[in-house]
Simulated assay, not measured.
Amino acid sequence: MELTGTKNVVLVDENDHVLGTMEKLQAHQEGRLHRAFSVIIFNDNDEMLIHKRASDKYHCGGLWTNACCSHPRLNEAVKDAALRRMQEEMGFTTSIEYIGQFIYKTEFENGLIEHELDHLFMGKFNGEPKPNPEEVEDFKYIGIDELKLDIEKSPQNYTVWFKKIVADYVGWNV
């Protein structure tokens, strides 16, 4: 089970008020609500950039998801964190716009519980990502209709939060 360092997450209430911090693995073991973000990237052909999480991630390894997802640091603006992690995970930056937030909770087969208040950002990028292999196993641009069909056919290949994003937010334009 891979877990980089003793990274903390920011615990929040349902209104995104900070309650403190907790070590990331402990927060997932206890199912504590914490702040997160997800970035959706489209190219000029209206294809979405998705990536396959590294197989040794401590949860959802080997699953396809949105371009970038992670957790901000305490006192770090969520948008700044999203831009930082996009560079660290996918090897590029681009302008992004905030489009909403949602809360979800799910228990994984390994007993960990993901309970996040997820801030959602969207942007455009037409280049070739240079992903960090410790984070990303593969990536591709995919048309929305093809993506939705594949999620319907093989939902087990995608992260829980990404399926929610596709169902609730895809179709919005930057």
Rank of each mutant, 00 (worst) to 15 (best):
9 V>A: 02
54 A>M: 08
40 I>P: 00
43 N>E: 11
18 V>E: 14
43 N>D: 15
54 A>T: 11
55 S>Y: 09
6 T>Q: 11
13 D>Q: 09
28 H>E: 13
35 R>E: 12
20 G>L: 08
51 H>V: 11
48 M>Q: 11
53 R>G: 10
63 L>W: 02
30 E>S: 13
71 H>E: 15
63 L>H: 08
26 Q>W: 06
21 T>R: 02
34 H>T: 03
53 R>I: 04
44 D>W: 05
55 S>R: 14
34 H>L: 03
63 L>Y: 07
40 I>K: 02
50 I>M: 14
39 V>W: 04
24 K>Y: 11
66 N>M: 13
70 S>I: 00
16 D>Q: 08
31 G>W: 02
64 W>H: 04
55 S>G: 15
39 V>G: 00
64 W>R: 00
12 V>S: 07
41 I>H: 00
62 G>Y: 01
61 G>T: 03
22 M>G: 02
44 D>A: 06
6 T>G: 07
43 N>A: 06
70 S>K: 08
71 H>S: 14
63 L>K: 15
37 F>E: 00
9 V>N: 01
68 C>D: 04
38 S>P: 03
29 Q>L: 14
67 A>T: 10
10 V>A: 02
51 H>Y: 11
8 N>I: 10
36 A>M: 07
8 N>H: 13
8 N>F: 07
42 F>C: 04
45 N>D: 15
39 V>R: 01
31 G>F: 03
28 H>T: 05
61 G>A: 07
66 N>G: 09
42 F>Y: 15
68 C>H: 03
53 R>H: 08
39 V>I: 14
